[in-house]
């Protein structure tokens, strides 16, 4: 069996907390069915690009699906912390693996969690909202790219954070705080263009904004010329964050 498959399988079996996973799925559904339905009556449908007009509940549902990407990212940091706390980090690095293979295996496991979580939320939420889709091939590829790049960014971010911080408790607090900043300066809950100017500026640097915008464009066939630009920026951010994670990870003290 391929070395990555073996390590990813181990990461998924050994380091995933089922209760946390359950709540990571509940969290976006809570937004969709409580906040989405609550605000749907007072927020009129609006255009998201390419002439596509959708209800607020659908707008939020798409944002909440990408929320699982961020949750998946937290998992990457947690996996690394579990291994460091339980002595398995050194044990694996003294085995027939390289550091790059180990860190990539965490990213791949995170991708599986992030994409599978997004799909589950999507499959559960959208039929209930009464939405029907007929996405084009380019739309599906766009969605896949958004989820992939978003998960790589947030997975790498969480890994870098977990290496930099001295305890798992600090990691949990700082990552929760950081992810709330990402969340509320993105276009998950509202279009970035209608936010206060300071948040608009922050949203331009926020990879979750691009993940969400690209996901929505692919899902609702709302492709505009800016989607390609957003994909490029998100890809660049993901590559830079991954490089940072690799550099920080190589300096980890054993």
């Amino acid at each position: 069996m391929n070395i990555y498959l073996r390590l990813v399988y181990r990461n998924l079996r050994a380091n995933l907390d089922r209760a946390s996973l359950f709540f990571e799925l509940i969290f976006p559904l809570f937004f969709i069915f409580v906040q989405g339905f609550g605000l749907n009556g007072i927020v009129p449908p609006f255009e998201i690009g390419n002439g596509r007009v959708i209800s607020y509940s659908l707008f939020l549902a798409a944002g909440a699906v990408t929320l699982t990407v961020i949750n998946g990212g937290t998992n990457a940091g947690t996996q690394l912390w579990f291994d460091r706390k339980n002595g398995m980090f050194e044990q694996i690095l003294m085995g027939p693996f390289t550091r790059a293979q180990y860190i990539l295996s965490i990213i791949f496991a995170t991708l599986i969690i992030g994409v599978a979580g997004s799909l589950l939320v999507f499959l559960f939420a959208f039929p209930v909202l009464g939405a029907s889709f007929n996405p084009s091939l380019s739309g599906v590829l766009t969605i896949a790219a958004a989820l992939f790049l978003g998960t790589v960014f947030f997975g790498a971010f969480a890994i870098a954070l977990s290496v930099a911080l001295k305890s798992s408790e600090t990691f949990q607090i700082v990552s929760t705080f950081a992810f709330f900043i990402f969340l509320f300066t993105s276009s998950v809950f509202f279009p970035a263009t209608s936010a206060p100017s300071a948040i608009q500026v922050a949203s331009l640097a926020n990879p979750l904004t691009y993940t969400t915008d690209i996901f929505r464009a692919g899902l609702f066939d709302a492709m505009t010329p800016t989607v390609s630009l957003e994909l490029g920026i998100l890809a660049l951010e993901a590559v830079v964050m991954f490089a940072i994670a690799v550099i920080v990870f190589h300096r980890i003290r054993v």
Binding site: R13, N86, G87, F97
Partner: peptide
């Protein structure tokens, strides 16, 4: 590393298994 085994001084275990 492909041909050695190591038992570290510190504990090491997979907590979820």
């Amino acid at each position: 590393r492909e041909r050695i085994g190591v038992v570290q001084q510190q504990d090491s275990f997979d907590q979820g298994l």
